[in-house]
Simulated scan of single mutants.
Amino acid sequence: MEKSATYYLALGSNLGDKFKNLQIAVDAIHLNIGQIKLISKVYKSPPVGFESKDDFFNCCLILETELAPVKVLKALLKIEKQLGRMRSSKPGYQDRSIDLDIILVEDEVFHTKILQIPHPEMQNRRFVLQPLNDLAPKLEHPVLHKSISELLETCKDKSVLEPVNIWLKNPSKALDFSKYSYFAIEGNIGAGKTSLATKIAHDFNAKLILERFADNPFLPKFYEDANRYAFTLEMSFLADRYQQISDDLSQLDLFKDFIVSDYDVFKSLIFSKITLAEDEFNLYRKLFYLMYKELRKPDLYVYLYQNTERLQENIKKRGRDYEQNIANEYLEKINEGYLNFLKTQKDFNVKIIDISDRDFIQNRKDYLWILGEICNTEIPSGDN
């Protein structure tokens, strides 16, 4: 997963239904750019730098995204255009249906012909500083080395801002994971379960449990000689998964909202049925159920289904040497094993999500669609 950065954006509108324009822009930012963490109050403010009979509605928000600043700017300009703003080449300020500006990006200093960060006028605009102060008063300007509250106190703009008694809705809050205290994301080799679990944990303040497969010394050996190392591999995985899940689920983290893992211990039984001889599997199954009955079961079991072609593409892309010769037949047996298992589980809350035609790493809309499937929430597709 790409490293995300924290952006501070300013939004304004003084034409048409101003509050609605702001809400549409907020929704579009969430859908196309990244995770909205906080939204300030909306303030009514007079125009600054030009004459107009229409006051502005202004606010700020905090955004997390993996996109680079120039890509964020291009996305914001696209949203402005969809909301009817036509930027003019004429000098001076004008009325506008929507205005979306990048104010700060952490402590970055960024200057190009089309974008300057920090915004060069932010310290002179009360309609930016006041809502930004609501969100991050101690945030420091990376060039002026003053906090937002200090800049607000010394700002020469004496405009009077009036709070609007309507709050913008944060679309991120529509995705409610509170019904699950613990859920597991499962899938075939290369399905994307680790990437999805990691992204959800980051975006929604969850405790993350990741399978420690990379530490298993028998895994490369298994791919070289499956018959010789299958039982040893499966036993080592079972022991490690049991210990990890037992330890991690027993350690309460008061600062996290829920737990998400990229595996469930039951995968041990699914893989072992494929890799072990019948007599070995019968022994393995007895040991498995002795251990499994003591473990906490996930509130939701998500299975990410991808077709074999996509799985092979993902395996090649991530480039682990020992995985490069995995046969299609082996992947198909794993898929079949999972699906047969899930169909028979009456005590499991199971959700199978087909992501064969989705790319939640590169396409935020696909990511949000998957979250909507998990939370039983309809996510708007958007027009762009």
Rank of each mutant, 00 (worst) to 15 (best):
E150G: 07
L67C: 05
V105T: 07
K267M: 13
A214W: 02
E280T: 04
L76H: 09
S13E: 05
D354Y: 04
E332M: 13
A184V: 05
L331M: 14
Q243D: 05
K193T: 09
S172C: 10
K221F: 03
V42E: 07
L168S: 06
I326D: 10
E211A: 06
L161W: 01
F213V: 06
I259F: 01
K316E: 12
E329Q: 14
Y284L: 09
C60L: 04
F177V: 06
A277Y: 07
N363C: 06
V160N: 13
G12T: 00
H30K: 03
D357T: 10
F348E: 13
E373S: 08
L175C: 00
K273D: 11
K169W: 00
G16C: 10
D95P: 04
L76S: 06
D54K: 14
D225G: 00
S52K: 01
R125C: 12
E80N: 10
K351I: 01
H202N: 00
V260M: 08
N363I: 13
R212P: 00
K316V: 13
D203T: 01
Q130N: 09
K286A: 11
Y367S: 10
L100Q: 09
K207Y: 08
D134G: 03
K169S: 14
R310F: 06
K365G: 04
I62Y: 00
Y223P: 01
H141S: 06
D215M: 04
Q312I: 15
N376C: 03
N328W: 09
H111F: 07
K286V: 08
F110M: 12
E51T: 11
N205W: 01
L104F: 15
H202K: 14
R296Q: 15
I29D: 03
D383H: 12
S52W: 08
I353L: 09
L304E: 12
S159T: 06
N216V: 05
F266E: 10
M86H: 13
D366W: 03
Q345E: 15
R320S: 11
K18T: 00
L31I: 03
I79L: 08
F19D: 05
L304H: 11
K74A: 13
G372N: 11
Y289W: 15
L168Y: 02
K169C: 02
I103T: 09
K20Y: 03
F281N: 14
L73K: 11
I39S: 11
K74S: 12
I259Q: 07
G34Q: 06
W167K: 13
R358G: 01
T275A: 15
V42C: 03
K207C: 01
E121Q: 14
P47T: 04
C155A: 03
K146D: 02
I334T: 10
L152W: 11
L22D: 00
I189R: 04
S13K: 03
E108G: 02
Q306W: 00
I79Y: 10
S4I: 02
D354K: 08
P380A: 05
K317V: 06
